[in-house]
Design a binder for these strands. Structure first.
Length: 425
RNA sequence: GGAGGGUUGCCAGAGCGGACGAAUGGGACGGUCUCGAAAACCGUUGUGGUCGCAAGGCCACCGUGGGUUCAAAUCCCACACCCUCCGCCA
């Protein structure tokens, strides 16, 4: 959520920033109008309320003095004022509710250094690491959705029987690989991040803080009976750890990591990437997260990108890093980078991590504050990113590590997790 | 799921229609005293909104949302959460 005071004091700056996303910015004017109305009504309401309070005190005093008749007169006067106050209060409340509804749907302003662009085709590639297009043999040019069934490590046919389209099931070394990747990503970040095992079902408030609600409700699984939502990423519960709290400044930055399953309805992408592990309703991911001061945020962002790159690189996979342009940014993002792994069998760059700085956008939604040096309170900044998203890395490993003579090797970094075996299949 | 008890400020805890943003104690912070410290004593100690150049004023907040009343922490209703017992359960 944007700061209403910014919209109030510099609406044109806010509009110019949002326009870089290529969206309609007329809501900003609408918010400004409603905010003005809400304040005007609120001031009037408070003035009448103050009068009612003063009169009520008089009534109490008159009763104690035994002057019942006069008390009744003041009561009548106060009652009339009270009715007017009630009307004003209702109008003011309606206006502020509308302001909030609009604010919840207005996206974050991009960072000045974020590149301009209309869509994902405009995301600049910052660097490509470990990639040699001619360095792959024919045995590596087989997609994982062929290799998986061939070696009995991917059984999507039965996953579909069990749960429906776009669910996957790994077996044997494939299941071990999926779990090993989680463990590995956690271990690599344990030096700086506290491990958390958060709930996977969360309340609407929690899902609103990170930005999925109200606008993107269709993308999430909802358990209607209990009004709970399946988390689409561990970002959601991690961000709400300190919701409605004031975080101790000397504890910032505060970093968390969590391995969780993630649930996504993928509404609107039915029929796309249906094969293999590229797009699934349920997948596992290790997420890293931080609360920070505005000053700490840029370095943390860079560190998180570097950590993810190093993790993917350490698995012997080729990857490239992109910065997300203004037209492709998520609603809550202020600045964002993607890491994509190269999968030789499918000959595609697969997004395996998105690392983002949210500025105070999520913190304002979740009311997460700290006490800056100058006194008072301010919203913290939040950052998060995938340390490692399993399915696409799984696919890249299976394709990259397929041997000319058959079988799939375990990347050396994962050997400690394979119970003495050096083969996935 | 059933029965009962509870939810007040940083913490503990009083208040159960009017002078309560809230007693009292503890903690924290500042000061006096001291060579220094402890003790003692004094003081300070919430968040947000809004108006104002400022000083400051006004308003809101006693789990959440409604209601009753001239007036609600206090009365009524609903919901959430916590505790105890019973049931169920990995």
């Amino acid at each position: 959520m944007l700061d209403i005071r910014r919209i109030r004091t510099e609406p044109d700056v806010v509009k110019a920033a949002l326009a870089r996303r290529g969206i309609d910015v007329s809501d900003i004017d609408r918010v400004a109008e409603l905010d003005e109305r809400q304040r005007r009504l609120g001031v009037e309401r408070d003035e009448i309320r103050a009068q009612v309070k003063a009169l009520s005190k008089q009534v109490g005093q008159l009763h104690r003095d035994g002057r019942a008749t006069e008390a009744a007169e003041v009561q009548a006067e106060s009652r009339a004022l009270g009715e007017r106050e009630g009307e004003l209060a209702a109008e003011a409340a309606a206006a502020s509710a509308e302001v909030r509804e609009l604010l919840l749907r207005i996206p974050n302003t991009p960072h000045p250094d974020a590149p301009d662009g209309a869509g994902d085709a405009d995301n600049p590639v910052l660097r490509v690491t470990g990639f040699d297009p001619d360095g792959y043999g024919d045995h590596q040019r087989i997609p994982h959705w062929e290799l998986g069934p061939r070696y009995g490590i991917l059984d999507n046919e039965r996953a579909v029987k069990i749960s429906g389209a776009m669910f996957t099931m790994q077996r044997k070394g494939g299941a071990t690989l999926a779990r090993a990747l989680l463990q590995y990503a956690l271990d690599r970040n344990a030096d700086a991040f506290e491990e958390v095992r958060p709930p996977s079902l969360v309340s609407s408030e929690t899902l609103t803080a990170t930005g999925q609600l109200p606008k993107f409700a269709d993308d999430a699984y909802w358990v209607e009976r209990d009004d709970l939502w399946c988390i689409p990423t561990a970002e959601v519960p991690l961000t709400s750890i300190h919701r409605d709290e004031i975080v101790e400044t000397d504890e910032l930055p505060q970093r968390f990591m969590a391995a969780t399953s993630c649930y996504r309805r993928e509404a609107g992408s039915a029929g796309r990437d249906t094969r293999g592990m590229l797009r699934t309703h349920e997948f596992d991911k290790v997420e890293v997260f931080a609360y920070a001061t505005p000053e700490q945020a840029p370095d943390l962002l860079a560190e998180m990108v570097a950590r993810t790159e190093a993790t993917i690189g350490s698995l012997g996979l080729a990857y490239r890093t992109l910065e997300i342009c203004t037209g492709d940014m998520g609603q809550s993002h202020h600045r964002s980078f993607d890491v994509e792994v190269y999968a030789p069998g499918t000959d595609q760059w697969l997004e395996v991590s998105s690392i983002s700085w949210f500025a105070d956008y999520q913190a304002r939604r979740g009311n997460i504050r700290y006490r800056p040096g100058g006194g008072g309170t301010a919203m913290v900044h939040t950052l998060n990113g995938s340390a490692l998203a399993v399915p696409r890395v799984w696919a890249a490993i299976v394709e990259t590590y397929h041997r000319p003579d058959g079988g799939i090797d375990v990347p050396s970094a994962l050997l400690p997790y394979f119970r003495g075996s050096d083969r996935i299949a």
